[in-house]
């Protein structure tokens, strides 16, 4: 065990898999000598050499196309998109090419590519650096999408993503990079790619969230506990596929559900969760399912970020509304 920040856990996962599998390759813009603009790949080029860890020309479509090509040659590429807002540049290579390769080849060709990328708001970045675009990739057939909310999951999920033979989009929360520390096991371990995690047990209300909003939700659960309300918090971890078993089980236990996402209301992860529960467990519910999300604008100008991002206060208000419904 070692205490690691969220980003150190990511670096450690990369180091572990570079060591354990010589077919893994880490590349992207500034990931080599510079060790990434956030230092997620710090020291990896020095340790594993320029053959395994390298800088590419500045082109996201190129980076993903290169990954598919390398996978066809038996490699296990781990490309980085420097900020997830730049993923639009690569959407054909991701959604039009990479995600379709196995299907297109009658299930004969796997392309085990793990796309790492930071996303999420709250750090006052310029335009296109903080957008929550996970629903866009989560609605592409053939792609897995996972996002950890803590250092332990960060390392374990990334290792699982790299070892998995499907293409995986691995989303790292920018705000959590350095704001969170926890004990993380040394060496290789896995966190299953398609399992939600009940991070806090409760009986009166289920809050389902992912990434940084899990921590906001936990704050609310702790606060409400002091008033005798027992809140269960479920961390989705995987956005595609959604682990409907875990969320339905929790909904059937607490009979009240709130779904939280940082993304805009129109972006579909929370909607997908709500529809799964509606279809599978609506008769067990005592109140309408609630949603907390950002408003339907484009990501806000930096100075107004805090007024826009859903926070613990918004979650608490909605949680009370659902708890009080009868």
């Amino acid at each position: 065990m070692a205490t690691m920040s969220y980003i150190q856990a990511i670096t450690d996962a990369l180091r572990t898999q570079l060591k354990n599998d010589d077919k893994t390759l880490v590349f992207g813009e500034d990931v080599g000598k510079n060790g990434g603009v956030f230092r997620a790949t710090d020291g990896l080029q020095a340790e594993f050499g320029e053959d395994r860890v390298f800088d590419t020309p500045l082109a996201e479509s190129g980076i993903i196309g290169l990954s598919t090509g390398l996978a066809l040659q038996g490699f296990r590429p781990i490309p980085e998109i420097q900020f997830f807002g730049f993923v639009f540049e690569a959407m054909d290579q991701i959604a039009g090419q990479l995600s379709r390769t196995r299907y297109r080849t009658n299930g004969t060709v796997n392309v085990p590519v793990t796309i790492r990328s930071p996303f999420g708001g709250g750090t006052h970045t310029p335009e296109m650096h903080a957008d929550s675009l996970e629903a866009m990739v989560a609605s592409v057939p053939g792609l897995r999408v996972v996002t950890p909310s803590n250092p332990y999951d960060a390392k374990g999920l990334l290792i699982s993503a790299i070892k998995n033979n499907d293409p995986v989009v691995f989303l790292e929360n920018l705000k959590l990079y350095r704001s969170m520390k926890a004990d993380v096991p040394e060496g290789e371990y896995e966190v299953p790619l398609d399992k939600a995690n009940v991070v806090r047990e409760g009986t009166d209300l289920t809050i389902i969230a992912y990434s940084a909003e899990v921590n906001e939700s936990l704050k609310v659960a702790e606060k409400l506990e002091k008033e005798g309300k027992s809140v269960e918090v479920v961390d989705l971890r995987s956005l595609a596929p959604i682990d409907f078993e875990t969320i339905v089980k929790s909904a059937e236990k607490t009979h009240r559900v709130l779904v939280v996402q940082e993304a805009q209301r129109l972006a579909g992860v929370a909607s997908k969760v709500v529809s799964e529960i509606s279809e599978r467990a609506i008769l067990s519910l005592d109140a309408p399912i609630g949603r907390v999300s950002a408003p339907d604008t484009i990501y806000p100008f930096g100075l107004a970020e805090d007024d826009w991002l859903p926070n613990a206060e918004d979650i608490e208000a909605k949680a009370r509304e659902i708890l009080e419904f009868n």
Partner: peptide, 10 residues
């Protein structure tokens, strides 16, 4: 800046 104004600009 107001979020309501951002919404009006969409």
């Amino acid at each position: 800046q107001k979020i309501s104004e951002f919404l009006e600009n969409v």
